[in-house]
Amino acid sequence: MNSVLKITQLEVDFCLNGVIMNSPLRGMNLEVKAGKTLGIVGETGCGKTLTAMAIMGLLPSTAVVRGDIELADHGRVTAVDMARIRGEEIVMIFQNPQSAFNPIFTIGEQLKMVAKRRNIARSEIEKLLISRLTSVGLNDTKRVLASYPHELSGGMLQRAMIAMSLLSSPKLLIADEPTTALDATVGDQVLRLIQELQISEGFAMLFISHDVSAVGKTSDEIAVVYAGKIVETGPTPVVMNNPKHPYTQGLLGAIPSADKARGTLVAISGNVPSKLTGLVGCSFVERCPMRIDRCVDEPPMVKVDEHSVACWRSEQ
């Protein structure tokens, strides 16, 4: 299985006047396989979105990025290379469709600007836009193209954003919480649409979400992120059915349902560490119900059955 994206030891520090303010990413490793979906789950502030931004080369200049980002057909790439590649082979859709479109240009104008990058004849652009909009279920193409963002609903805008992402034939789609800002029903439709298109277009997907159940259903592989690092990764059914890391176990146990008795949800105590700079040992140790003496050292990622876990107790 060939991969479209491989990230090794990705670290991001934010520096101000030479002083490291925070290190939200502390060595991310992940791999997205061609045509497959890798789901990244984790709670607020664990570095999910930042990983996406680092891949796209869209971090602000105060960020210091270390580690390797490798793309199929390109090898190791830098932020400078990404300026050329992004929007073409790697595209991204964002959480809030209302703010992702420029408020003072029509949807048509904005899609055209992106389409024009591809050296397509003027007459072809119109055709491309119409066929893309219909393929995302926006059949009233004339109206959509002439509309300003505030004239369309969130669901329609997210569809238009998906259409924009597919103007080129991307190899990788990064979807950063694509349904969080939408109503449940609309979100479900949008996610299905992306998945249908994934089957027909064959792109790989990096699906970033805080919703464990959604990722658990819709991804092929899953990576659980905690405090700027992956703590467990593997084929989704394996991780979901047999989580090894105490954090993954905690997350799955925390999902409320009618079957679980009231007051007995697994509630990981405490909070995500707010300052990650200079963190030593296992980042989860403070909240871990199963900690042992060895946890003062950072646990390496080890392969257990079909998945990889960063926990000293995983071998037991």
Binding site: L58, A83, I85, R86, G87, A100, N102, M113, V114, R117
Partner: peptide, 13 residues
């Protein structure tokens, strides 16, 4: 620093 400029960058404009 707004989202839509970030998006424009992400689409390689």
């Amino acid at each position: 620093s707004s989202d839509y400029i970030k998006v424009a960058r992400a689409y390689g404009l």
